[in-house]
Amino acid sequence: MSPKYKDMEVATLSPDQHQVNLRVKVIAQIMFGEVDDGNKSTLSKIKVAEFLVGDSSGCIIVKAINDQISHLQPQTCVLIHNARVEMYRGFMRIVVDQNTDAEIKPFGEASDDKATNANGKADDIQPNLEKNCSLTEYQYVPHVVLNE
């Protein structure tokens, strides 16, 4: 059975990329917090968390909100489907939020999963911690055409 989408490698990601599909191991939770949703009439909060995830090519930070957070447990493998790369202060992050139709699924929940064991643990993915794509700073340089 062929996969519905093509997996990418972390090291091949570029700034502001969309439709990102990754098969990664969750290494650690970096941050967790709650922020206002911006609606003054409801005064509700949005849960936000960041995780370090990786594959054999490198690692990167993933920002997730609300329901997606529960899928990102350290030492498990997940499929991140249709996410986007967002720049935060010049550094790349994978974003899974309400502005995308992205989803995070533990291994074994997709019909095309072959590389998992029964409990969804990440036995087959060894993250490359030497190449952290979230630590590379990018600077916007506008494209300027000079008249010669």
Rank of each mutant, 00 (worst) to 15 (best):
residue 2 S to K: 10
residue 2 S to N: 11
residue 5 Y to H: 08
residue 6 K to A: 13
residue 9 E to V: 12
residue 11 A to T: 02
residue 12 T to Q: 12
residue 13 L to T: 03
residue 16 D to G: 05
residue 16 D to H: 13
residue 19 Q to P: 00
residue 19 Q to G: 01
residue 19 Q to N: 15
residue 20 V to R: 04
residue 21 N to P: 11
residue 22 L to C: 10
residue 25 K to G: 02
residue 26 V to W: 07
residue 27 I to H: 01
residue 28 A to K: 14
residue 30 I to V: 09
residue 31 M to K: 11
residue 31 M to S: 11
residue 31 M to R: 11
residue 32 F to M: 09
residue 34 E to H: 03
residue 34 E to D: 03
residue 38 G to I: 04
residue 38 G to Q: 06
residue 38 G to H: 06
residue 39 N to A: 10
residue 40 K to D: 14
residue 44 S to E: 14
residue 45 K to C: 00
residue 46 I to A: 06
residue 49 A to C: 07
residue 49 A to D: 10
residue 51 F to V: 01
residue 51 F to I: 00
residue 54 G to W: 03
residue 57 S to E: 06
residue 57 S to I: 02
residue 59 C to D: 11
residue 60 I to P: 05
residue 62 V to A: 04
residue 63 K to L: 14
residue 64 A to L: 08
residue 64 A to K: 11
residue 68 Q to S: 14
residue 68 Q to Y: 13
residue 68 Q to T: 13
residue 69 I to C: 08
residue 71 H to C: 13
residue 72 L to D: 07
residue 72 L to W: 07
residue 73 Q to G: 01
residue 75 Q to C: 03
residue 76 T to K: 10
residue 76 T to I: 00
residue 76 T to A: 00
residue 77 C to I: 01
residue 78 V to Q: 06
residue 78 V to Y: 01
residue 82 N to E: 15
residue 83 A to W: 06
residue 83 A to H: 05
residue 84 R to V: 14
residue 84 R to G: 06
residue 85 V to W: 06
residue 86 E to P: 00
residue 87 M to S: 13
residue 88 Y to E: 10
residue 90 G to S: 04
residue 90 G to E: 10
residue 92 M to V: 09
residue 94 I to V: 15
residue 95 V to P: 06
residue 95 V to N: 07
residue 96 V to K: 04
residue 97 D to G: 11
residue 100 T to R: 10
residue 100 T to V: 10
residue 101 D to G: 14
residue 106 P to H: 07
residue 108 G to I: 03
residue 109 E to Q: 08
residue 110 A to C: 13
residue 110 A to Y: 06
residue 111 S to C: 05
residue 111 S to T: 09
residue 114 K to P: 00
residue 114 K to T: 12
residue 115 A to E: 12
residue 115 A to W: 02
residue 116 T to R: 03
residue 117 N to D: 08
residue 118 A to D: 02
residue 121 K to P: 00
residue 125 I to M: 10
residue 125 I to P: 13
residue 126 Q to W: 04
residue 127 P to K: 00
residue 127 P to Q: 07
residue 130 E to D: 15
residue 131 K to G: 00
residue 132 N to A: 07
residue 132 N to R: 12
residue 132 N to M: 01
residue 132 N to P: 11
residue 133 C to D: 08
residue 135 L to K: 15
residue 139 Q to F: 11
residue 140 Y to K: 14
residue 142 P to E: 15
residue 142 P to D: 14
residue 143 H to F: 12
residue 146 L to T: 05
residue 147 N to V: 03
